[in-house]
Write a protein that binds this DNA or RNA. Structure first.
Lengths: 149, 149
DNA sequence: CCTGATTGCGCAATTG
DNA sequence: GCAATTGCGCAATCAG
């Protein structure tokens, strides 16, 4: 809950360049290895004519580098925020759905009860008919039963 | 989409390349850096309890340090895995709930229809009664109407 | 006090 | 080329 870590170094103008090596893949990371100033001498020995930009680790003092890093850091923060929010939304959605589920179940319960009552009425009626009328022809023995599920 | 990276060594018998040497003492860390007064310069020979381990940058070369780091890294990985899994579960839960919701809605639809049919039957019956019998005794003119929601 | 679990953060490699 | 993602390590802090 703090933010006092960060090995964010001031883009200081120390005359040392940092070698990156492929330590990254090995597990080691932001542990810059000091290296005597480049062959040129100054911190910035790279002339406009970029040498193989691809193969070199890109010195960390470079403005370019720092800028890219900062941009990426912002992007990362943004992305993570978004991600977190999404997760939260999803969680909320779960609750929402659960609520609605309960609502629906309650409604089902109600409907089922109503249905049951009506059916009972039907039965009652049928009995009345059976009692008051001689068993003649049209005898429906309540066969309007269908169970779902 | 996401994968195919990481040539991380085997978790367990890893081979953390030893790039982290003593050279890392650049000004990159905001940490207080090395102890100003080591036990060497006539300092106290560590009394009962070591000097406050706190506030000290803790030698990065220390075995203790590396060990702690590695343990923490494992813990972190574990924690993140767990977190990710939980998120996934939540997502799954959403789908599950959505499905159930649909199921319930369908059931409601069915029940509602059934109810409607029964009510219609009642009405029909009532009409029959009204037509064949003089409005005398028990004559309910359909008053069992209740709408939910 | 120590240890594992979490969390915020930066780095670098990928991805889109 | 650049922003978004993603895996990872570090350090601070929490929790047991």
């Amino acid at each position: 809950m703090s933010k006092v870590s960060q090995q964010n170094s001031t883009p200081g103008v120390n005359g040392i360049s940092v070698i990156h090596t492929q330590a990254h893949a090995s597990g080691l990371q932001q542990v810059p290895q000091l290296v005597p100033a480049g062959p040129g001498g100054g911190g910035k020995a790279l002339p406009p004519s970029k040498q193989s930009k691809k193969s070199l680790p890109m010195d960390r003092n470079s403005d370019e580098y720092r800028q890219r890093r900062e941009r990426n850091n912002m992007a990362v923060k943004k992305s993570r925020l978004k991600s977190k929010q999404k997760a939260q939304d999803t969680l909320q959605r779960v609750n929402q759905l659960k609520e609605e589920n309960e609502r629906l179940e309650a409604k089902i319960k109600l409907l089922t009860k109503e249905l049951s009552v009506l059916k009972d009425l039907f039965l009652e009626h049928a009995h009345n008919l059976a009692d008051n009328v001689q068993p003649s022809s049209t005898e429906n023995t309540t066969s309007s039963d269908n169970a779902g599920q």
